[in-house]
Amino acid sequence: GTVHVGDKTYHFPTPDAAKKFAQEIAKKLNLQVTVKNGTWQVH
């Protein structure tokens, strides 16, 4: 899975790992999470 946070991109071996990371970052930074075609965006 891929997660975009601002101008950074993180790659994870599984979709679940990407989802978990995106949700944790969003919670920590009080941001929104959207997913499109398996790519997570934190914004």
Rank of each mutant, 00 (worst) to 15 (best):
T9N: 05
K27H: 12
H43M: 13
K20R: 10
L31H: 05
A18H: 00
V33P: 04
L29G: 06
T34L: 06
T9W: 11
T9V: 14
Q23C: 07
H43P: 04
G1L: 11
K19T: 06
V35H: 15
V3Y: 00
N37M: 04
K27T: 12
W40F: 14
P13S: 13
T2S: 09
Q23E: 15
G6V: 06
I25D: 00
V3P: 01
F21L: 02
V5I: 13
T2M: 09
K19E: 15
T14A: 05
V3L: 02
N30S: 07
V3F: 01
A18N: 00
G1F: 15
H43R: 07
G6E: 06
G6Q: 07
P15F: 14
F21N: 01
H4I: 15
T9A: 09
W40I: 08
H43K: 08
P13H: 11
K27L: 13
G38L: 05
K36M: 14
N30T: 04
A17V: 06
G1N: 14
L31T: 09
V35P: 04
V5A: 04
G6C: 03
V5H: 06
F21V: 03
V42K: 01
I25F: 06
I25G: 00
K20W: 10
N30G: 15
P13D: 14
V3A: 04
G6K: 06
A17L: 13
V33D: 01
Q41K: 07
L31S: 08
G6M: 12
T9E: 08
N30L: 05
I25R: 03
Q23A: 09
I25L: 13
H11N: 08
V35A: 08
K8A: 09
T39L: 09
A26Y: 02
Q41T: 15
K19M: 14
K19P: 00
W40D: 02
T9M: 09
I25Q: 06
K19A: 15
K36E: 14
V3D: 00
A18P: 00
Q32H: 13
N30P: 01
K28D: 07
V5G: 01
T14P: 00
A18L: 01
K20F: 10
W40E: 02
H11P: 03
H11W: 13
N30E: 06
A17S: 08
Q23L: 15
T34V: 08
F12R: 00
A22E: 00
V3Q: 00
V33Y: 06
K28P: 04
V35Y: 15
P13C: 06
K36G: 07
D16R: 07
H11V: 09
V42W: 02
G1W: 14
T9K: 08
K28H: 09
Q41I: 15
D7F: 10
D7A: 11
I25P: 00
Q41C: 06
Q32W: 07
H43F: 13
T39P: 02
T2K: 10
T39S: 13
A26V: 03
W40P: 02
A17R: 07
K27I: 11
L29E: 06
V35I: 12
Y10R: 01
N30V: 04
V33W: 05
H4T: 13
K20Q: 13
Q32F: 09
G38Y: 07
Q23R: 07
N37T: 04
A26D: 01
V3T: 02
F12L: 04
K8H: 10
T2C: 04
Q23N: 12
Q32S: 12
K27F: 11
D16P: 03
T9P: 04
Y10S: 01
A26I: 02
K27Q: 13
A26W: 02
V5K: 01
H4R: 14
A22S: 03
Q41G: 05
K28Y: 08
T34Q: 06
Q41W: 15
H11T: 10
V42S: 03
A17K: 08
T34K: 06
L31K: 05
G38V: 04
H43N: 10
L31Q: 07
L29H: 13
G38Q: 07
D7Q: 11
A18R: 00
I25H: 04
D16G: 10
H11I: 10
V3R: 00
K36H: 15
L29W: 12
A18Q: 00
K28C: 05
F12G: 00
N37P: 03
Y10Q: 01
A26F: 02
H43W: 11
N30A: 06
W40H: 04
V5F: 14
G6Y: 12
T39M: 14
T2R: 09
L31Y: 08
A17T: 06
N37K: 05
H43D: 09
L31N: 03
Q41D: 09
G6R: 06
K28M: 11
L31D: 02
K28E: 12
Y10W: 08
D7K: 13
H4P: 00
V42R: 01
P13R: 11
T2H: 06
E24S: 10
T9G: 03
G38M: 05
D16Y: 08
F21A: 04
V33H: 03
T34A: 06
E24L: 11
G38H: 11
K20P: 00
L31W: 14
G38T: 07
G6P: 02
A22P: 00
K20G: 06
Q23P: 00
A18M: 01
N37I: 03
T14M: 04
W40V: 05
G38F: 07
H11L: 10
A22F: 01
W40L: 06
P15I: 10
F12S: 00
N30K: 06
F12K: 00
F12E: 00
F12N: 00
L29S: 05
T14C: 05
P13K: 12
K20D: 11
V42P: 03
H11E: 07
K27W: 08
Y10L: 05
K19L: 11
V35M: 14
V35Q: 13
A18G: 02
H43V: 13
Q23V: 13
Y10C: 04
T9H: 07
H43A: 12
V3E: 01
V42T: 04
F12Q: 01
T39I: 15
P15K: 14
G1H: 14
K36A: 13
V3H: 01
